[in-house]
Amino acid sequence: MSHTAHIPSHRKPRQSASKTALRAGVAGGVLSTIAVAGAAGPAQAEPVTQTIEMPTITAGLSTTVAASAQATQQVALDLETRANEEAAAASAAKTAEKAKAEAVRKAEAKKKAEAAAKAKAEAAERASRTAARTTLSASTGSSSSSSSSSGSSSSAGSSTASYSSSATGSAASVVAFAQAQIGDAYVSGGTGPNSWDCSGLVQAAFRTVGVDLPRVSQSQSTAGTQVSLDNLQPGDILYWGGAGSAYHVGIYVGGGQFVGAQNSSTGVVQKSLDYDPPSGAVRVL
């Protein structure tokens, strides 16, 4: 026997096929488990991704944003409309205020113009009356110097007469009213109760019997039927100047006398027709 026959061999013993198969199965099982675990990981994450459903959330948000934008735009339109309405109202109010101020200004200007025209007309009437009286006084003075009889007549005419009218009815009321104002002051534009101008006195006297005469001398001189100075009756209106252009009026009280608001020096007086001969007369009653 060889000396080497009992020396153990250093070779690795061959593994049997069954062991090899077993090891391969174990390894394959481990790898399969790893593979399954690896596959299981992603499989669990996938449902989370699908549950978010981002497209649906985005669509809802877009609708909300659109609605909010529309509401904001409507608010802006409402504010703009309100601002326009307020501006229009303010403009209309300003225009109305200007129109009112202009109307007031025109009314005041018209009133002033009317007052100025009235004052001018009254001044012209006073000037004409003064000129007529100056002429009459010169004529009367000349007649007085020519004869004592005419002078006496003129003197009698210049004095305040004491004649009491015998008029009746409405004429008596007119005469009585006029005579009751004797001694009152003469004031241009005066209509009583204690101061008068000529036409104001005549108008007030006839108003006591319900007759509404025009206010000024020119109109009063044509307010009735023209009558002759030789056919006068108590209550007739006497006028100085032309019919329709008279500058002075008075009331005939009978007995050749009249009552009138003459001027600021004499006031309301009763005088003879010779004192200031009238141009004509009209009968209203």
Rank of each mutant, 00 (worst) to 15 (best):
A109T: 10
K110Q: 14
K110H: 10
K111E: 09
K111S: 14
K111N: 12
K112A: 15
K112D: 10
A113H: 02
A113R: 08
A113E: 15
A113F: 07
E114F: 09
E114G: 03
A115W: 03
A115N: 12
A115G: 03
A115K: 12
A116N: 05
A117C: 07
A117I: 05
A117W: 00
K118I: 13
K118Y: 14
K118P: 02
E122F: 05
E122L: 09
A123M: 02
A123Q: 06
A123P: 01
A124Y: 03
E125N: 11
R126A: 14
R126M: 07
R126Q: 15
A127I: 00
A127M: 08
S128Y: 11
S128T: 10
R129D: 10
T130F: 07
T130V: 10
R133Y: 07
T134P: 03
T135C: 00
L136G: 06
L136D: 14
A138V: 09
A138L: 13
G141L: 14
S142I: 09
S142D: 07
S142R: 05
S143T: 08
S143R: 11
S144M: 14
S144C: 07
S145L: 11
S146W: 05
S146C: 04
S146I: 15
S147P: 10
S147E: 04
S149F: 05
S149L: 08
S150M: 09
S150D: 11
S150N: 09
S152I: 10
S153T: 02
S153H: 00
S155I: 03
S155Q: 14
A156P: 02
G157Q: 05
S159K: 03
T160E: 11
T160K: 07
S162T: 11
S162H: 05
S162R: 06
S162M: 01
S162D: 11
Y163L: 13
Y163N: 10
S164L: 13
S164W: 01
S165Q: 14
S166K: 09
S166T: 15
S166G: 15
T168S: 14
T168P: 01
G169D: 04
G169I: 01
A171G: 05
V174P: 02
V174Y: 14
V175G: 02
V175I: 04
V175R: 06
